[in-house]
Design a protein around this nucleic acid. Sequence first.
DNA 1: CGGAATCAGAACCAAAAGAGTTCTATTTTG
DNA 2: CAAAATAGAACTCTTTTGGTTCTGATTCCG
Lengths: 152, 152
Amino acid sequence: MIRLTKQADYGILLMTQFARAGMSGLLSTTDLSTRSRLSQPMVNKTLKQLQRAGLLVSHRGVNGGYRLARDAGAITLEEIIEAMDGPIALTECHEHTGGGDCGIKATCPTRVNWGVINSAIRDSLAGITLLQMIHPLLGSRRIKERVKTNPV
Amino acid sequence: MIRLTKQADYGILLMTQFARAGMSGLLSTTDLSTRSRLSQPMVNKTLKQLQRAGLLVSHRGVNGGYRLARDAGAITLEEIIEAMDGPIALTECHEHTGGGDCGIKATCPTRVNWGVINSAIRDSLAGITLLQMIHPLLGSRRIKERVKTNPV
DNA sequence: CGGAATCAGAACCAAAAGAGTTCTATTTTG
DNA sequence: CAAAATAGAACTCTTTTGGTTCTGATTCCG
Ligand code: FES
Ligand code: FES
């Protein structure tokens, strides 16, 4: 089945916690571990990855923790998922990082289609911000609007 | 990284071969194995799954083989991927088969959003037929049209 | 007939990826 | 300096994937 990894799931879960806490909310791994019922090491690992991806900023030392790097409205699901799971591309040859190559790339008859499909999926995810995730009803409406006004 | 399994990849590859052969084209595993440079057991396994999913019909015995169950224009990428990899749902709780349940389904604040996202992705894949896959340039245009006239 | 070709289904094994823990720095505060 | 926090990497265990093998059932054709 095509599905997110648990890591990405955790990432989204934790990021929504930050979104609820707002831009000024500084949360430590112990805070989040109790809030989310995830183990502390797991929370730790996840937050570190989000920090490396530039979605969170960290403050070390006593009373340290993490905080959103940007406003919740400026962080998309696509970014979170890519931070945790790596590039979103159904087939190896079409990552938008430009890496993979299958050897027949130049002549591959289905390449064009895959490009379109991958963009469609990425755009779906890029169209949803953390802010929308914590306001579900508004969120779903906005997605539909976005897709309508700016189709693939 | 979010990506298709090789099984699904093989499924799509083999189905495009059938699409090129047309509705009347009867291809055996040995035929396809030589055409695709996949091992015969692998081709065999893949075709059996596609048959079970109702996308191919089989003919046993000497000079047997497989053939498209429907016209290539009536078989979508979504069907092929689901036949090989199972339901397409980024999060377990939202398979459209209605199976999974995380325990907080009733009150989950992000459920609505995930439903929208999953449908968007499914629709992208359901909007592409085998026929379009073997005519790349036409295909990509048609996808765009479809999304424009019938957004998520 | 009867054997060869072909599909059907399941079991099986190895390799890779995923999930989670642990350990050892490093930084900051008080 | 000691305590509280993040940083980074290594490591193990489990699950999934990828692929093969084996046995059985069906059909064609000489
Ligand atoms: S399979 Fe690699 S470009 Fe088509
Ligand atoms: S996580 Fe299961 S319904 Fe939201």
